[in-house]
Design a protein around this nucleic acid. Sequence first.
RNA 1: GGAGUCGUAGUUCAGCUGGUUAGAACGCCGGCCUGUCACGUCGGAGGUCGCGGGUUCGAAUCCCGUCGGCUCCGCCA
Length: 591
Amino acid sequence: MLDTLGTLKRTRYCGELKPDHAGEQVTLMGWVHRRRDFGPLTFVDLRDREGIVQVVFDEDKNPDAHRRAKDLRGEFVAAVVGKVVMREKEKYNPNLKTGRVEVVAKELYILNDAKTPPFEIDGARASEDVRLKYRYLDLRREKMQYNIILRHRSLITVRRYLDEHSFCEIETPQLIRTTPEGARDYIVPSRISPGNFYALPQSPQIFKQLLMVAGYDKYFQMAHCFRDEDLRADRQPEFTQIDIEMSFIRQDDLFKTIEPMMVELARLIEVKVDLPFPRITYSEAMSRYGSDKPDTRYAMEIVDLGAHLADTDFALYRNALDARGQVKAITVKGGAKYSRKNLDELTEIAKRFGAGGMAWIKVSDAGDVSSSLAKALGEEKVTQLASAAACEAGDCALVIAGKPSVVAASLNALRSEVAEREGLIDPNKFNFLWVTDFPMFEYHEEDGRYYAMHHPFTSPRDEDMDKIETDPGAVLAKAYDLVLNGVELGSGSIRIHQRETQRRIFKALGLSDEEARSKFGFLLDALEYGTPPHGGIAFGFDRLVMLLAREKSIREVIAFPKTASAADLMTEAPGSVSEDQLRELHIRIVE
RNA sequence: GGAGUCGUAGUUCAGCUGGUUAGAACGCCGGCCUGUCACGUCGGAGGUCGCGGGUUCGAAUCCCGUCGGCUCCGCCA
């Protein structure tokens, strides 16, 4: 028989009880975490959002409650009325936040029973598909409760900070017009307008710019965004951005506004961050780290060996260099210990990023140089390269040759792999880094045209304006990313606010005036009605919380995430719809 | 779209180059136990070896296909 809530009222959370509460009569409500039955004496760990406390049922003191407690099973929902008492010192449980007290039960109400859960809450770890299918049980786990509540605290911190700095949160539509370029849109059929579709926003980009035109000056929004692209550990089809836009500002003003907000967020997990954040240009980041989002918690910077190989006749390197390619290396401190197997594994990683192979140069503790390049280059040259790569006694240099993009990607991958293996990553470091001066355009071989690297509303740098038509590949943009520990946290730019500049950029992207007008007419119109200079940024909120929670996947900080194939294992979305629904929407399924 | 990896009891896993009745731990059910806290102890139940096909006298094991989880490449203005 189950009890009703009746007039019972919770007075405390289980997890908040401590010696201060000794002597207090409390009413607790929660889930049965564990039961330990000693016949006349039964212990029940009762759990709620704040934690666990031990409840004692003693046959001698309260036989009715004790008898009732025999029926309790894991995850039953119970209300306990009882008295908080200090435990004797030798009975403290240091593993429990509430371990110095316990509750002696006077009354027990069983508010609901529960099936045996498919996995133990906070027991041995279940696999992710089981966790996702029973997400409501998974979310009961202490770790998940911490993550979800940390997410809430982060959200509140952002909102409060931005409010205190005169930002105004404004919601923008979720049903919008599809926009060309960028990610694949999720589309929504219109019932009222047969054959037409809305798109879900990839970001509120254009709306926030229009809000600047409208004079709102400092805007933000915790914006839900949708991108129909393949998933990753740090990518979900729907996610949350901290979307920000400001008028009458330069890049510097924006950086100064954002940095203290990040400091406050880091404070949530008691991590100190120094101001101002370091800055690096895109081109420097690419040459020193091979990445536009370098992890600066460890050094292991990339060294260019090209100058030392200028006169080489080793065909592999000769061809690479002649084809405007590169030969570059990183040096692993203490890497001379790497076995053939280790080096093979690293080679596999480099190959995954397009490298043809990987060469190595080892310097033994005694100073002897050995290398996979010894035959091809000769001992003297290899020694010279080792010294160029600062490869000293006990170290190993890893060398990659090829196109710049492949060399960068491979060495970047090797760099993070080695840092992981060698334990070079200090988990308490939170290294923020601004990456600036991104190229304006990216050339796509297959389409034979330029694309905007950031988006087509990004302003070129003033000094590059005259190259838009003559040398688009050399134009740098007022675009910037915020990187944290090798993760791209946010991306933004100063926007174009003059009609003529926007026209030139569209043209450089191969959009005729007519096409531009049909796709972005309202924006072009708006630019003619007094648009202030403005710029902004958007942060991946899920990634931010993931890093604060020290998780490896954003799924761990999203209450109901999707799998790698974009499915929800709990609700079984996506699912089919009825014929009637399809008919109303003027949609027919083919094949 | 591609690559890798995993799929065996409710859960986490073991099960070798094919060979009697597919195991362990935890969980679950029942008994005993007055200070446990991952309680202990005695007993018990529990399996479409993801699914489909093939090879074989014989398949959890080998082969092919397929579905699903995870990771990565492509993709993600």
